[in-house]
Design a protein around this nucleic acid. Structure first.
Length: 736
DNA sequence: AGCACGCCGACT
DNA sequence: GTCGGCGTGCTC
């Protein structure tokens, strides 16, 4: 067969088009889509991906450069991944080259020869397996590392150890004492075997779990299931047994979870249950490990793949099931660059692969509830907590006019004291990190504002500084007011650090553990804090939403929700939905074991209808009420939106661009509402003025047809060169 | 987005 | 005299 003269190549560039190249100089077999090639692009060399071929090009052949080198004999990227990326590129109106760039392991983009598939991993030696704690009495860290290695007889990769916060020095020290060794083995690239899928006996499902499982397992081909299970109802057990059935057919399962540091608890349960390789795609992996995992998934050597957002692009040898856990979580939507929703792409992928997909959540997104109502998803409900645990009752506490200590009410302190006395744990939820959100001069009213953003600077205590959470500016804390010279500078409002301080003062006999992005910067520190909590002794937990996601705290019996009032009046149309989900999730931390829990919700708005609905009738009632309102104003899921955002050094440049863009579309915007341009909620961020234009339609196809034609015009606008801009399809936040 | 070219200010 | 500021133009 003769080679076609022209190939369409996807290149990692923001330009929304493919580039034509001539066939390589040396004669060879035609190149298939998915093959990687080395091309010269502009002044640089780049790895591109063949997506098609042709006899002709829009450009003169003399203008085309030849492909310089063919990097693969067979396509490196399987056809279904190409299809998924093409679909995403069209739907999100994003450059296909950049979509590939994000979807594929970094090493596939380097032209260098890729080393053979070997894994390196640490293992305890025989001596290391036998010694007691006394031998390493003087080095707690080394002993802990050794225990970890003992727990994993098949060995732990360096990447995994790094992820767990183990320092290389500890491993080297153990190696010097002949207690641990670094080994190498050829990685398996054969499909996994199915003769002994289980490593432990599954739990016996309750009636609801069994009904859900029956529905899932009986199904052949594509079907979306919405598994709506209250916290503690045993969703994970349903996942595990659905996966088990899939593995027994020799098929692989892909599991997507939110960005919560791949909760070791979830991962542990999967590894414990199955006797087949489980691949975790976490942030600690090196490029090499990532590529190896990708290849093992493609070859079918790993049976279960667990990962965050980008794992939706993992190639599968024999796909059988896709699961999206906590499907409502907004971290499934990428918030910069290629702004895709991994949850939505999981649906697309399941349909393409003709396999079932399970979306699981205690608080499903309104989109998913709507889809279930419309019959597009099949609803599977787990309304009861597993075992005897009852749902913790809510108590709304009106704090108007009350004396508060760092935001904590007397009543909360009283309940907390009782709880600690009973030997139980208390959790204080405050979704704001730092010491105080505002630093105020008591004499003249000056307060610390960020130089680059329309935002206050947050006072931090550990170490002491002012920090802008929007642009990451750090500055020292002024001792005197820059305006009037007064030294009476006061922190106003509460952050987790301040609550931690106050609780430490009030409860000197009990440990106070703070969990937020600042206190858990190192995985090691997080593990340490979690260990304190899991010991089960009475203690106080203070934290942001990090606390609410993924971690189970069986000894917590009182949850104090300190400040959600902001979320009740958020400017964003999803504010209420997200607040409801967050409250429900935090509340779900109370009383997961045999002990009964209690949730205290402090608010200045005890009569707020959304709060009442949530507390008295539950999340589903709140969701239905929000859905009703969304229908009236044609917002998602009843209307579909995209937003064109622009930012520039001068406000006028950003606004002008959006006005030009609006004008360019006006004549053919049928069935499309264009709203704006309006300033973003934070008008200035990182020194740039930000505006947005919202596009809204009740018909998705019409919106996408419009976007396609419109973007071509928008790209050509001269004012577009004076502003930085992007399009966000299905944005999760409009006030961003 | 990169990356170059290009035309004007403050330094050895 | 040059180093380098970022405006603008291009990438098959």
């Amino acid at each position: 067969m003769s080679s076609p003269p022209v190939y369409h190549i996807a290149i990692a560039s923001p330009l929304r088009r493919l580039f034509d190249y001539l066939a390589p100089r040396h004669e060879r077999e035609p190149l298939s889509p998915g093959c990687r090639v080395l091309v010269s692009f502009g002044r640089r060399k780049d790895v591109g991906i063949v997506v098609g071929s042709a006899d002709q090009s829009e450009l003169e052949f003399s203008k085309l450069k030849p492909i310089e080198k063919v990097l693969d004999d067979a396509p490196a990227i399987p056809p279904d991944i190409i299809d998924l990326c093409r679909w995403a590129s069209e739907y999100y109106h994003h450059s296909l080259g950049e979509v590939f760039h994000q979807a594929l392991p970094t090493l596939l983009r380097s032209a260098e020869h890729q080393a053979e598939e070997v894994e390196t991993f640490w293992q305890a030696t025989e001596k290391g397996l036998l010694i007691g704690p006394d031998t390493l009495k003087r080095s707690q860290k080394q002993w802990e590392t050794l225990l970890l290695l003992r727990d994993h007889p098949q060995g732990l990769s360096t990447g995994m150890l790094k992820h767990l916060g183990i320092l290389p020095a500890n491993l080297k020290a153990l190696a010097a004492k002949h207690l641990a060794e670094l080994h190498t083995r050829n990685a398996l690239l054969e499909p996994f075997t199915t003769d002994a899928v289980l490593a432990e006996t599954p739990l016996t499902p309750n009636v609801d779990q069994q009904a859900a499982l029956n529905a899932i397992v009986a199904h052949q081909g594509f079907q979306a299931f919405l598994l709506e299970g209250v916290t503690g109802s045993g969703k994970t057990e349903v996942y595990l047994q659905a996966i088990e059935a899939c593995l027994r057919r020799g098929e692989q399962a892909l599991v997507l979870i939110p960005e919560i540091g791949l909760t070791p608890q979830t991962l542990g349960r999967f590894r414990q249950r199955f006797n087949v390789p489980v691949l975790a795609l976490h942030s600690g992996l090196s490029d090499r490990e990532r590529l190896l995992g990708w290849r093992q998934a493609r070859a079918g050597a790993v049976a279960v793949i667990i990962g965050t957002r980008s794992a939706v692009f993992t190639p599968l040898h024999k796909p059988g099931l896709i699961i999206v856990d906590e499907e409502h979580d907004s971290s499934f939507k990428q918030q910069d660059g290629f702004r895709y929703s991994a949850r939505d792409l999981a649906l697309v992928r399941a349909k393409q692969l003709n396999v079932p997909v399970i979306l699981g959540s205690a608080t499903p997104s309104l989109e998913s509830l709507h889809n279930a109502d419309q019959g597009r998803y099949r609803l599977l409900a787990l309304p009861n907590r597993a075992g005897d645990a009852a749902k913790a009752p809510y108590q709304i506490l009106d704090i108007k006019g009350q004396t508060l200590k760092a935001g904590v009410s007397e009543h909360a302190l009283k309940l907390g004291t009782q709880c600690l006395k009973r030997g139980e744990q208390v959790l204080f939820f405050m979704n704001r990190r730092g010491y105080a959100p505002v630093l105020l001069c008591h004499d003249c009213g000056w307060h610390a504002k960020c130089r680059h953003c329309d935002a206050h600077m947050t006072l931090h205590r550990d170490p002491v500084h002012l920090h802008c959470h929007h642009c990451d500016t750090h500055i020292p804390v002024p001792t005197h007011c820059p305006t009037c010279g007064s030294s009476d500078m006061r922190p106003v409002g509460q952050g987790t650090e301040r609550i931690e301080d106050t609780l430490t003062e009030l409860f000197p006999k009990f440990p106070v553990v703070r969990i937020d992005r600042d206190s858990t910067r190192s995985a090691e520190r997080l593990q340490k804090q979690l260990r304190v909590i899991h010991e089960g002794k009475p203690c106080l937990l203070v934290g942001t939403q990090m606390l609410a996601k993924g971690h189970h705290f069986p000894h917590v019996t009182l949850v104090v929700i300190m400040d959600v009032d902001g979320g009740l009046f958020s400017g964003d149309f999803r504010g209420l939905e997200h607040t409801g989900q967050l409250i429900d999730q935090v509340a779900g931390r109370a009383g997961r074991s045999e002990k009964r829990g209690q949730v205290l919700l402090q608010t200045h708005h005890p009569e707020h209808p959304a709060l009442r609905l949530l507390v008295e009738q539950g999340y589903r009632a709140l969701a239905n009420s929000i859905l009703f309102e969304r229908r009236l104003v044609e917002l998602p899921p009843y209307g579909h939106i995209a937003v064109l955002r622009a930012e520039a050094q001068h406000a006028i440049a950003a606004r002008m661009f959006l006005l030009d863009a609006k004008n360019a579309g006006e004549s053919f915007a049928r069935d499309i509402d264009m709203l704006g341009p309006i300033p973003a909620a934070m008008g200035r961020k990182s020194g740039r003025y930000r505006f947005q234009l919202v596009l809204k339609s009740t018909q998705r196809p019409a919106l996408h047809r419009f976007l396609h034609a419109w973007l071509a015009l928008v790209e050509a606008l001269p004012s577009g060169k004076k502003a930085r801009w992007h399009l966000d399809v299905d944005p999760v936040q409009l006030d961003d």
